[in-house]
Design a protein around this nucleic acid. Sequence first.
RNA 1: GGCCCCUUAGUUCAAUGGAUAGAACGUAGGUUUCCGGUACCUAAGAUACAGGUUCGAUUCCUGUAGGGGCUACCA
Length: 560
Amino acid sequence: MLDIQKELSSVIKAGLKELFSISAEEVILQETKKEFEGQYTLVVFPYTKEAKMAPPLIAQQLGEYLVKNSSIVAGIQVVQGFLNIRLKDFVWLEILKQLQGQLNFNLASKGEKVLIEYSSPNTNKPLHLGHLRNNFLGYSIAQIMHAAGYEVVKTNLVNDRGIHICKSMLAYQLFGNGESPESAQIKGDHLVGKYYVAFDKAYKAEIDELIASGLDPEKAKKEAPILLKAQNMLLAWENNEEEVVALWNKMNDWVFDGFAKSYQVMGVNFDKTYRESNTYLLGKELVQEGLKSGVFYQKEDGSVWIDLTEEGLDQKLVLRKDGTSVYITQDMGTAQLKYEDFKANQSVYVVGNEQDYHFEVLFHILKKLNKPFSTGNYHLSYGMVDLPSGKMKSREGTVVDADDLMSEMIETAKERTLDLGKIDGFTEKESSELFHDLGLGALKYFLLKVDPKKRMLFNPEESIDFQGNTGPFIQYTHARICSIQRKAMEKGIQIQPIEDMETVELSEQELIYLLNEYRTKIDESAKNFAPSVIANYAYDLAKQFNKFYNELSILNEEEP
RNA sequence: GGCCCCUUAGUUCAAUGGAUAGAACGUAGGUUUCCGGUACCUAAGAUACAGGUUCGAUUCCUGUAGGGGCUACCA
């Protein structure tokens, strides 16, 4: 296998030694920018001191040495301290031959299994805009890592137990009148969410009442009857009381049913779904184990803690004094379960950045417990999605509902496409699929083009553009390329895919160049867990293709 | 208070420590024309501030200012 970089750097090393007596350990070559000649660039500034010579002179002499001594270098260009290297055509042909029959866009297997946990919804309310960013990030990073040569397992951890779930259940018991998704014609998750809101409303009314009757506000918050009832219900649930468990099952089924529909519209899926109600007990076992081995310690009141002050963190509770588990307890259990199920080398958690501290603590605990799954953990932490009015708050009703948003996007796509009048002859099914792809494409691209760790702004008023740096623009370009190639085939015209390419050889060179570039981007994207790298690269390519095809006059435009 | 993250054109986003900091939207001007829209061309416009490391800093380090998050026996 011909390795261009290796070949070049070994000659460069020899040249540095012979011409300037510099022994370089490593030579870093970068891709040449488009506006300059050549494919690879060596930056010679670092050698100025040792060579005692001006950078352009070093580059010139080194370049001449390369042309003379390397069989693959066709020519050079010197710009200040930059040495641009142009390779001979046969090099590209050689590589093309090697790639023959394996022009596969996926990279060679890395022989590693990576587990990606994302989505992780609560079963007390429907999904919102923030969940969309999570789901799209998780799903796309899974696709990217697959393309980068990893074996990928997608998991979802559903938080289906706890006081917040009981709140919805209680409100349903009080005000529900036996309503069901069927009878109310509402998606299950939305119906349950409705009662979560109803609880909060009743709870606030009770607090106001108590305060009006002269109670201290802090006390009122803790002693509102409806809250006490919810707490009782949680205890009843933990004690497996039949009636409560039945209600819990019924309402969870509604929510799962609703989520399944949302996931389908989103186009995401999972290999395995875990439920917190099944993993928290295992977490408790791990706490007992760690207590024995001295990783945890017990306070007098019976609560169990870990001391991470040596690691620069705090002390952290892992089990309440009443023996019930907290969030981190169940996460320990889930980690073990996932390991037993899949034995992955890496485990990625797609969770918002408000939980940075939580995961730092979790990973430290796993290390201290000395578990095989204590390595390879990564928290893919992403920033919040803000609205122009500020942060989204469920209780204040300032959330953007995921289902609503997706429908609106599809509706917008429909309106714009109909305006353009480009779907004549489409069946109804084809049209609605097209609207779905365009609407979701716009939404996905919008949420993915931004560096995950940054906060981002979403303006629903302006909706999302279908022109410029957007998903539909890329989709449109793809459709246009296909259409042009189809027409060209019909007319028997041979199209050179890249500007300035006159011979078949050169277009093959460019093909490999693009393939290499694509693979580099995939690797970079996977390494940084950043779909934004690929997203922006795709836009860049689409723009280039569009510009080139704009100059082709043989064909008419076609529908996206 | 302590810890973590962020700050780039008017706005929303790019830029493995390298070449003239890229786009998009918006704005202005122009081509096109019954008018508008579409399309195309052109222009203006940015690294929060102060130091440091380096041949070279948007990028790394320190400090300042601004924004956000965490700091629950919530999840």
